[in-house]
Design a protein around this nucleic acid. Structure first.
Lengths: 187, 187
DNA sequence: CCCTCATGTATACACTCGTAGACATAACTT
DNA sequence: AAGTTATGTCTACGAGTGTATACATGAGGG
């Protein structure tokens, strides 16, 4: 029985947003309800709608917040392929339990409304950033292809749970992924 | 007003199964209900449970049936990379509307029960087949990696709807994908 | 022809969903 | 200290979920 938190609009709003990031990332847009998100934040379901308009409105802000901070991409073009490969393998390890935007995307994409929000967020944040770091010819397509590889690997390893990928030697996975990213980002 | 179809257990069961393939592939496991599937098949929701035990039971048979017939993979090792790349780009074209097992996987994976069924189906059918066609060292891992690339590309192009990938030159996409698959399957 | 069983339907239950409207209370202003 | 407004909760509604039980009906065998 914790003391009833002082009334603070911005703090409450932030708590709901963080609970939304966690809930949507772990269970996907259709896999969690506003009541459960609100309970994690310690408030009532209706406050979600008051601060974010609707479940969809909260999801849009969650996508925005989740894609804003970088988790996988580095800024150094020279070591981009290797760093990306290493970070990808590390963050998709069987016991890793991070709240990555890719998990948010993979688990929420089946809902058409969520997919549209995700598409906008990806093109605004992620593709643009890859393009900054590796501005080659046909850069946008290659950035999108690199994202495809990242998303596919993430899906198979963490959402599907492929035993082949989870039982593989991690150093070998990093080497293979580095080859793929080098091909895509430094043609 | 069609004539009320003659009573035929196997035909009805097959109709439900085909409606299940269509429904689960288009909307994902959580995105469609048994009533809608039953209506597509022209029967009542309860018949789904009578013939398949439950929604989850129907999904398991849908996965089995959908992964049984090959849509993307060819059998000739020599042209595997190119054929795979070409088929992938063709079947993920913006106006293509096929019922591919990859769409079934991408849209149903967020549900944990569905993910487990999918994982088993993938390892039974798809990975094994890739391994047959391209038996290299570390074959299982490389087959799984190739599947990751296919799944990621499918996700970005058809589920997310990346404008970069959908606006790109298709021949260029095929060339890039062929390079990736060659790297993975003919190291 | 009629009886029987397989095939299909109708109803209902217990639950969850997103969200709307009315109400309560804490905190700041005057 | 009193009033006002922002902040949060309670109740409820209409719709949809998967599925269990009871009932209806058509088709084949005696």
């Amino acid at each position: 029985m914790t003391a009833p938190r002082r009334r603070d609009a911005v703090a409450t709003r932030d708590a709901i947003l963080r609970a939304g990031v966690e809930g949507f990332t772990r269970h996907g847009y259709d896999g969690i309800g506003v009541r459960e998100i609100a309970q994690t934040a310690g408030v009532t379901a209706m406050l979600v709608n008051r601060y974010f308009g609707s479940k969809e409105g909260l999801f849009a802000e969650v996508v925005e917040a989740s894609m804003a901070d970088r988790t996988v991409l580095t800024d150094d073009p020279a070591t981009l392929a290797r760093d990306l490969a290493a970070a990808l393998v590390r963050r998709t390890a069987p016991h890793a339990d991070d709240l990555d935007p890719f998990l948010l995307m993979l688990r929420s994409a089946p809902n058409p409304r969520a997919a549209e929000i995700l598409r906008a967020g990806i093109e605004k944040h992620v593709e643009a950033h890859v393009l900054d770091v590796a501005p080659e010819s046909r850069g946008t397509e290659r950035a999108a292809m690199a994202l495809s590889v990242v998303a596919g690997f993430w899906l198979m390893r963490k959402v599907i749970g492929s035993t082949s990928l989870n039982g593989a030697d991690e150093a070998a996975l990093v080497r293979t992924l580095e080859q793929l990213f080098t091909l895509l980002l430094h043609p």
